[in-house]
Nucleic acid binder design. Structure first.
Lengths: 137, 137
DNA sequence: GTGTTAAATGATAATGATTACGATCTAGGA
DNA sequence: TCCTAGATCGTAATCATTATCATTTAACAC
């Protein structure tokens, strides 16, 4: 997923193309596969839009997550955002706790778990691995 | 883990035995293997200690988690607590989103993940499965 | 049992993330 | 160009978490 494609998806969902959204998507593009906090994005955003409402950044990030453009996680009680991976296969992420950089993990045990929990209805799951990426290690 | 053993562990760590801590542990005992929020515990706690400080419940829960008596998770941005499992083997949890009840999951893919991420230093990981338990299903 | 002291609690408020709301502005179609 | 729904701004409310400090209390020595 990238900003160009994201703008199309926004349109498909009836959302308008605004300068603010374009800027926000550009920022997300720059962070590529790195999780970024609302606060950091708002700070970067404010360089181009002085006095920008925190709510604007916040609301748009949640909108983008809602329609599947972004994926989120929560680190230390703070939500983090990044573009949703393009790959169609189900996968998870290693997350570097130093820089936020992520690496895909292409194995998931949830199928096996389902077998070991008869009578349980499984709605979703979370599997994340934390540590230091090669660059930060 | 139960309240009796927990009081011993508290003592081992140099913490005092107070009526409040005893009550809190009793409450956790009653919830057994169910994740409970600070707020709910504080409400139940307040029945015996009217006007109890929220901070007392909160602080003690974090202390108990620090010394390994409790384990925590975060649901909808709210921390939840339960007694740490007695079993010494590494495991994870299925969590019922309706009642908070947990079931142990005795398989973990983190070893395999480590192999697929050369150069990464893995510090910890989170694997949780959410859904409805047999009773709530 | 009494006194001492460090720790715990109560009362209150600060902090930070998230969410809400009304007024104003603007994108996009008529 | 005009109109209108949607977006943004400015501000503030809400909620979970954390801090502060005076008061109380558990644990220990005597």
């Amino acid at each position: 997923m990238n900003s160009t494609r994201a703008l199309e998806v926004l349109k498909e969902h009836g959302y308008k193309h605004t300068k603010q959204r374009e800027k926000l998507l550009t920022l997300l593009d720059q962070h590529d596969d790195i999780y970024v906090s609302v606060k950091q994005l708002w700070e970067e955003f404010s360089e181009d839009f002085p006095g920008a409402s925190y709510d604007t950044v916040y609301r748009n990030l949640y909108t983008l997550a809602d329609i599947g453009i972004l994926e989120t996680t929560s680190l230390d009680g703070e939500k983090q955002f990044r573009f949703h991976c393009d790959t169609s296969d189900h996968h998870h992420h290693f997350i570097c706790t130093a820089c936020g950089k992520t690496s895909a993990i292409h194995l998931c045990p949830v199928e096996d778990v389902a077998l070991s929990l008869p009578g349980h209805q499984i709605d979703n799951h979370k599997f994340e691995v934390y540590g230091k990426c090669p660059a930060c290690h």
